[in-house]
Computed example of a mutant assay.
Amino acid sequence: MRRLAIDVRPGEYAVARLAPDAPVPANLLDPGEPVLISITRTPEELSVICPAGLAPAGATVEEGWRLLSVRGPLAFTLTGIIAALSSELAAAGVALFSISTFDTDHVLVRAPELERAVKALRESGHEVTV
């Protein structure tokens, strides 16, 4: 695996679940502060990843996540990025939640495990900026 540049983003994030027919919370679509917001609808749920302060009311919410973003853009032909990050974090006992966007890959780790995650990624040869 090649060496990756990874940025730890400020603030805590939340992973939220709404009913599959719930409307997308309009405030999440407003342009503003440059933060990651991911909205995914499946037949079973409307899933939202966002800064904890923007978590939708009435959702089932898992708070306390920190966001690590691979500096991109990454070519679509690259393989194994999430596999490498997940195996390196798994070896350190750190659970993750992954998201991919057009330009890059992101992982969320529980806030109490952030220090261990950063250490594991650095020891695997990645550049991690906190």
Rank of each mutant, 00 (worst) to 15 (best):
M1P: 10
R2G: 10
R2M: 14
R3H: 11
R3S: 15
L4K: 02
L4V: 08
I6T: 02
I6A: 05
D7A: 04
D7H: 03
V8C: 05
R9G: 00
G11T: 02
E12D: 07
E12F: 03
L18Q: 03
L18R: 01
A19V: 07
P20N: 06
P20Y: 01
D21M: 01
P23Y: 09
A26K: 13
L28H: 12
L29A: 14
L29G: 13
D30K: 11
P31Q: 09
G32A: 08
P34Y: 12
P34H: 15
V35S: 12
L36A: 14
L36T: 14
S38M: 05
S38Y: 02
I39E: 03
I39W: 02
R41D: 08
R41H: 07
T42A: 09
E44A: 12
E45H: 08
E45Q: 13
L46D: 04
S47C: 07
V48K: 08
I49M: 09
I49N: 01
P51W: 09
L54S: 13
P56H: 02
P56S: 00
G58S: 03
V61M: 02
R66H: 07
L67Q: 07
S69F: 04
V70H: 04
R71M: 13
P73N: 11
F76L: 15
F76Q: 13
L78H: 11
T79W: 00
I81F: 05
I82R: 02
A83L: 13
A84D: 15
S86H: 04
S87R: 15
S87D: 13
L89R: 05
A90V: 03
A90Y: 02
G93P: 01
G93F: 05
A95L: 10
I99H: 07
S100Y: 08
F102T: 11
D103F: 00
D103C: 04
D103R: 04
D105W: 11
H106D: 10
H106K: 12
H106A: 09
V109F: 00
V109T: 03
V109P: 00
R110E: 06
P112T: 01
P112V: 01
P112C: 00
E113Y: 06
L114G: 00
L114V: 08
E115M: 05
A117N: 03
A117F: 01
A117S: 01
A117W: 01
V118S: 01
V118F: 05
K119P: 02
K119D: 10
A120P: 05
L121M: 06
L121N: 00
R122F: 01
E123A: 04
E127C: 06
E127Q: 12
V128T: 07
V128C: 06
V130T: 11
V130D: 04
